[in-house]
Simulated assay, not measured.
Amino acid sequence: MAEGYTSSEGGSASRRALDESGKLYTQMKSHIATSGQLDRHGFPRPGGAANRAHFLESEWLNITKVSPCKSNEFNNSTHKKCRRCKKDFTIETPDRVTGGQCTYHHGRCWNNIWKCCGKQEGSRGCTTAGTHVHDDNMRDPSGYVTTVIKPTPENGNPGMYAIDCEMSYTINGLELTSVCIVDHNLKTVYHSYVKPDSRMLDYNTIHSGVTERDLQGVSTTLKDVQNFMLETFSKDTILIGHSLESDFVALKLIHETVVDTSLMYPHPRGLPFKSALRTLAEKHLRLYIQRGTHDSKEDAVACMKLAIAKVRRQSFSSGRGSSARGGRNRGLENFLLDFF
């Protein structure tokens, strides 16, 4: 494994690490999402014009509710419908939002029961916020950047990175407020809070983990994050994550070489259901995440581990992994636990 070697072990160890990296990239390629999957799951797609994205116009997205936004239309008006409680409200000025307080359920509704409070579907919300919020900007096609073709490295690995983003509600909608990127060695290559472009309405802390204190003094902007991605990624870099369409919309990134753990590990009941990342991590890695304050690095690492575990399991099952760890004959689960 690449993370098993250090510079002190000499050039041959470095070359072996590079070879392993290229091999892992080749194995991971079989799980890259197809163009059809990117379309159906609401990924931003090349729009035919500079800095603009295109979203599939299909009732399929609304019926299955797998896209990051419940509408294919970009609502740029001041009249909004609250993302949480569904009440109408108006943004009169950047400093004034009508409609009063928002009472809503912050958890998921499963089998007609809200997980946040155990109440029946249709019951009054269990959480109260000071204002209504919207996510209409998630269908804004402007401001996107696109990864480009770059020369392929000697080891054949243009890079594999896992991404997790957090968003908070502003006057403009849902905006990026935190991003973490880790490489295939689980090393953090980028981790930053991000200053939104407009006034904050709700930090969305219960889901994002981002607080007012976290953003104090932060100067990093979305443009700074985009510049880092364009410098680091190429068109062939494999980006890994869970329901990455939402992350790409938050990053305003168009990229087509994607491995999505929600597709690698489909829900037993099929679409529109998707297994939660914490469920997959616990089931396939014996890894328990999201048990306290939300951590974007924890989620990014979990996604990378899930993706690597998938290809390692395939390699192990086909017999290529039987000689791993000095040829000792051991169970697959122990092999994976040792790997991580």
Rank of each mutant, 00 (worst) to 15 (best):
A276F: 14
V249E: 03
T103I: 14
N185F: 00
R313M: 06
S35E: 15
H54F: 15
G173R: 00
E121V: 04
P94D: 13
S178W: 05
L280R: 02
K283A: 15
G270L: 12
L271G: 09
K86D: 12
N111M: 07
T128M: 15
V311H: 00
P44N: 11
H132C: 12
E175V: 12
P268C: 05
A49I: 04
D19F: 10
A49Q: 14
F43I: 07
G143C: 05
C180N: 11
L280T: 02
H242R: 03
G4W: 10
G47H: 02
W60V: 11
R16W: 10
G118S: 10
R16Y: 04
Y265F: 15
A300N: 05
H105M: 06
H267F: 08
H54Q: 12
R139W: 09
P94N: 12
W114D: 04
D140Q: 08
M167F: 08
F74Q: 05
C165H: 01
A276P: 03
A129F: 04
I289F: 07
Y25D: 02
V182E: 00
N111Y: 03
Y161L: 06
P46Y: 12
L230I: 13
S142C: 10
A17T: 06
I181R: 00
S142L: 14
L277H: 08
D183S: 12
R330V: 07
